[in-house]
Design a binder for these strands. Structure first.
Lengths: 263, 263
DNA sequence: TCGAGGGTTGCCCCGGCGTCAAGGTCAAGC
DNA sequence: GCTTGACCTTGACGCCGGGGCAACCCTCGA
């Protein structure tokens, strides 16, 4: 006969665990010897190893109980389910490994791939990292608010970037953050933006993304505060009858939306 | 800005979990709007997704805290460790799947492969299943008591089975369980056993496996009670000066051990 | 104006043991 | 025979990562 520690060691569990199984009724209490020690037979070994095999597979002890006391067909059915779950868990862990590797590589897991690709395109245009980071944060917020629209919106932005005027506008973010407010080039940029806005209105691109007003204000104020030149740019446009940036309005009447302009 | 449910949904966690992270200080409490609602920014999204990536990898929240607040090299080192653990966990689960399949197939996980092979050899000799089951239980107990010796002992048993006399002895368990006690063949078997024991003594095979006396008694009594013929066999041997079965003694003096005879 | 569907805090609950605490038993060595 | 140290016993509390629920507040659309 076996002592509890022999039993436990052979099955690869702790003595504490075996007693726990007694407590919850999963393993029947065996006979005791005259000193009160539990004394186990082969059936206990077999049952304990079955318990551990199932428990190692992540099966809750209560379910282990049911399975071991069930008929062979219910048992087989249960094991199939467990194995399916195990496979799923293995795949989940493999996915986690990939995400972990991306995290370690400094990738931005908070953004869908489409947005990352878009930001890379901006980087390719020479846009400074400071601006990219602002825009990235904005996209994170947008993706969180309207995740189902994000790929569609990004596709729109890519289309816009095919317009040379839009590329010129982005060149504003290549060095313009350092321009003084009275730099004459700011006026040139304003002209470009106005042309873009007119075209957007003509194309009927007056969508509402469903972003809340507060957030739009936040994006606009981030833009305005990013540099004196940016502040000036927005002021010029407002003089010409365009209010806002993220969501542009023609003052006083029509509410326009350019399909989500930069920050 | 995001509400807690937008944040939670985007990161794929529950609202409850986000609040839990606030409680344990893992995610800083954000600003509140005028109605007291939490209001999240992009940094919170990034942090939450990092938390989840690590937590999904099985990292305890306290360790997640340390990692996220650590320098890049400590972070990288930590991630390496986590990934190693993940790989180990995946391998563990794959092993569990195999064991589960064996369990479902009705295999005896409680026995090392060497013993299973030995029992199969007995089956091949035509030994009846009733006896095999008795012997299997005995081997489970032996394996549990002296796991480090089991393969060695089984190798010995295989050697013994190369002896034609031993094969004849096992043929006893092919039908002899049904023999009457006064069957003359029992005496023949006793002769065979005696020859085997003599040879074991000559070969100096007088080992002590370290099995406890109680257990040896149990095995012997199981043997004796298995059939009238078995009882008779043991009685004959005792008359001739051999006591015991599992651990044989030459009466009155030398204590012999045959290298673990059957049951 | 009202109800549905958010949000808030606070507290208890779970599984699967680990970890004491406070003793009893047993074999071995002196 | 006595001590030592390794084992055994029961019982109670601790741990993690939240889930669930109560009871209330806030906001928005019909």
């Amino acid at each position: 006969m076996l002592t509890i520690s022999q039993l436990a060691a052979y099955a690869g569990v702790t003595v504490r665990a075996v007693r726990h199984y007694h407590q919850v009724g999963l393993l029947p209490e065996p006979e005791r010897d005259r000193s009160g020690y539990r004394s186990y037979d082969a059936a206990a070994v077999v049952r304990l190893i079955r318990i551990r095999t199932l428990a190692d597979a992540g099966v809750p002890l209560a379910r282990v109980q049911e399975l071991l006391d069930a008929g062979p067909e219910e048992f087989a059915e249960g094991v199939r389910t467990i194995d399916t779950n195990l496979r799923a868990e293995i795949r989940r862990l493999q996915g986690t490994r990939k995400r972990l590797a991306r995290l370690a590589a400094g990738e931005h897991l908070a953004l869908p791939g489409s947005v990352v690709g878009y930001l890379d395109r901006l980087r390719g245009l020479g846009v400074v990292e400071r601006y990219i980071e602002m825009e990235r944060d904005a996209w994170i917020m947008i993706a969180a608010q309207v995740p189902h629209l994000i790929d569609f919106v990004i596709a729109k932005k890519h289309e816009q970037l095919d317009d040379p005027d839009m590329v010129k506008l982005y060149s504003f973010f290549r060095g313009a953050l350092d321009w003084p407010a009275d730099d004459p080039r700011v006026v040139e940029v304003a002209d470009i933006v106005e042309r873009l806005m007119m075209r957007a209105v003509e194309a009927g691109e007056v969508g509402a993304l469903g972003l809340d007003d507060q957030f739009v204000d936040l994006l606009d104020s981030t833009m305005v505060q990013s540099s004196p030149a940016a502040e000036r740019l927005v002021a010029i446009l407002e003089e010409r009858g365009w209010r806002g940036w993220t969501r542009v309005e023609r003052v006083p009447a029509e509410r326009l939306h350019t399909g989500l302009p930069p920050t």
